[in-house]
């Protein structure tokens, strides 16, 4: 089965077939119970914890020879984490890789959901550091499991209450808790809350893998994902004052880049593929040199 591989020592996609089978079973259970954290026997991977070992195991288990893989880290295809995971799967699975969102069948992500709307033939795999949304409110794991089982989620609102009491608004901007299909409260991994609405009734299957914590959870396609809030302090996403400095996109998530030591800064798309595509289509932002004359 492994005839394409030059590395006879590795099975296709690194993990052995029994391990993949075990992880697929966990994934199936996770899909059957949206938002529920399924324990699985997480393996040692050839990268440190915190680098996406959970996501890599999930990707390895669902990857087929015909898949096209895209890996992003904070929205970018060219950062260390993304480059090394992409290279890893090229080496151990010989799959096609891409940086273009629309061409990928599996997208492994750390901290972002691509700006382009995903479709029903795509799977989004998240790398999750801490899967338990109640962790910092209730340190006992036995207790948090019981709280999930009995749907006791009052404590989650205590956190939001504290936010408002201290800051006047809900100051949680990432890992913003959501309720999945009206039942389980879930940590959407440290994605900015800007991306929470994209999870709601997404066409793509969303899988979450936490390697160190040994948990897998999932949001099946077309599932309700509702961000928690108060009636008088409704959930809202971040707003940016200016458009992307390179492609002039607005309504997307922007990164702040410091340009010099005199307060110069610019805001650019965090999704590099989206930004590049827009520039290819002729969109020009404030700091895109080629069309300096066109800048205001």
């Amino acid at each position: 089965m492994n005839k394409h591989s030059e590395l006879a020592v590795y099975n296709f996609a690194y993990l052995d077939e029994q391990t993949k089978r075990m992880i697929r079973r966990a994934i199936l259970k996770a899909i059957a119970i949206p938002g529920y954290q399924v324990p699985f026997a997480s393996r040692e991977m050839p990268m440190p914890y915190g680098w996406g070992t959970g996501g890599v195991q999930v990707t390895a288990s669902i990857l087929g020879p015909d898949d096209t893989l895209k890996v992003i880290d904070q929205g970018a295809d060219d950062t260390t984490n993304a480059v090394s995971i992409r290279a890893f799967f090229q080496k151990v699975a010989h799959v096609a890789v891409t940086t273009q969102t629309a061409q990928a069948t599996i997208i492994q992500t750390r901290h972002r959901i691509p700006e382009e709307t995903l479709t029903d033939n795509q799977v989004l795999v998240y790398q999750v550091p801490i899967p338990e949304p109640l962790r910092f409110l209730e340190p006992r794991e036995t207790e948090t499991r019981k709280m999930h089982a009995l749907e006791e989620y009052g404590l989650m609102h205590v956190k939001l209450y504290e936010d408002i009491a201290r800051n006047g608004h809900i100051a949680t901007t990432y890992a913003y808790p959501v309720k999945v299909e009206g039942r389980y409260v879930m940590d959407p991994s440290p994605t900015p809350k800007f991306d929470n609405p994209k999870m709601h009734r997404s066409q793509a299957l969303q899988l979450f893998g936490a390697g160190r914590e040994k948990r897998i959870y999932a949001i099946p396609p077309y599932t309700d994902v509702v961000s928690l809030d108060f009636e008088d302090h409704p959930f809202e996403v971040q707003q940016f004052e200016e458009p992307c400095a390179l492609c002039a996109a607005s309504g997307v998530y922007l990164d702040e880049v410091v340009l010099d030591d005199r307060g110069g800064r610019m805001f650019v798309c965090s999704d590099t593929d989206y930004c590049e595509k827009r520039r290819d289509n002729g969109h020009r932002g404030r700091l895109n040199g080629e069309t300096a004359g066109a800048v205001k």
Binding site: E152, G154, L155, V158, E162, A165, F230
Partner: peptide, 27 residues
């Protein structure tokens, strides 16, 4: 008590646990 959250949240926790979702009323 929950020693790391404010007095208001300590009092409000039970209200939130039974489904009160209006910050102003809880406070």
């Amino acid at each position: 008590l929950r020693m790391t959250v404010s007095a208001g949240a300590n009092v409000g926790e039970r209200l939130m646990a039974i489904g009160n979702r209006h910050y102003g009323n809880i406070r």
